[in-house]
Simulated assay, not measured.
Amino acid sequence: MTSRAERKYRVATAFQRRVGNPLLRRMPFQTLLETTGRVSGLPRTTPVGGRRDGDTFWLVSEFGERSQYVRNIKADPRVRVRVRGRWHTGTARLMPDDDPVARLRSLPRLNSAAVRAIGADLLTVRVDLDG
């Protein structure tokens, strides 16, 4: 990762950890991704932008495999997603062969613009929701 990308990563993750995520988690209709902490085994909830398409939920990680929730998914792909205030269980899959920039065009615009502006190593994540 270049020094500029590293700086973006540090600034963005510090802001998200201390300010953005705590505020967004409290919003009743914010989309949330719940993973299991790979070390603690505790639930970890992260605000995300994405879209449900039938029995699939799509999102793009702005820092790829460096994102803590992606690292948790690699350890345990069972997740929950809260969409429009309702929780759904599913299995997350990392999609390194998917074009994340093209994928962002089909996801909510505001979040997609932020992911493109802040992100340094985009990675598509697909969640196959249980029936």
Rank of each mutant, 00 (worst) to 15 (best):
T2V: 11
T2D: 07
S3P: 11
R4I: 04
A5N: 10
A12H: 06
T13C: 15
T13L: 12
F15Q: 07
F15E: 05
R17L: 08
V19P: 03
G20A: 10
G20F: 12
N21F: 13
M27V: 06
P28C: 13
P28I: 05
P28D: 11
P28Y: 11
T31P: 09
T31C: 15
T31E: 15
T31Q: 12
L32E: 15
L32D: 13
E34W: 11
G37M: 08
R38G: 12
V39S: 12
S40V: 00
S40M: 00
G41T: 14
G41F: 13
L42G: 00
P43H: 11
R44W: 08
R44F: 08
T46A: 01
P47G: 05
V48K: 03
G50P: 01
R51Q: 02
R51C: 01
R51G: 02
R52E: 12
D53K: 04
G54E: 14
D55L: 10
L59T: 02
V60G: 07
S61D: 02
F63C: 05
Q68A: 15
Y69F: 11
Y69V: 00
Y69E: 00
V70P: 06
V70R: 03
N72T: 09
I73W: 01
K74T: 08
A75E: 01
A75K: 00
R78H: 15
R80G: 15
V81N: 01
V81E: 01
V81F: 01
V83E: 06
V83N: 01
V83P: 03
R84P: 14
R84L: 14
G85P: 05
G85H: 00
W87E: 04
W87M: 06
H88N: 04
H88Y: 14
H88R: 14
G90V: 06
A92L: 11
R93P: 12
L94I: 13
M95D: 14
P96H: 10
D97W: 11
D97H: 08
D98P: 14
D98A: 11
A102Q: 11
R103C: 02
R103W: 07
R105K: 13
P108K: 01
R109Y: 09
R109E: 13
R109W: 14
N111D: 06
N111H: 07
S112I: 07
A113Q: 03
A114P: 06
V115M: 10
V115Q: 08
V115P: 09
V115E: 08
A117R: 03
A120Q: 06
L123T: 06
L123K: 01
T124V: 07
V125M: 08
V125S: 04
R126A: 15
L129G: 03
D130S: 02
D130N: 00
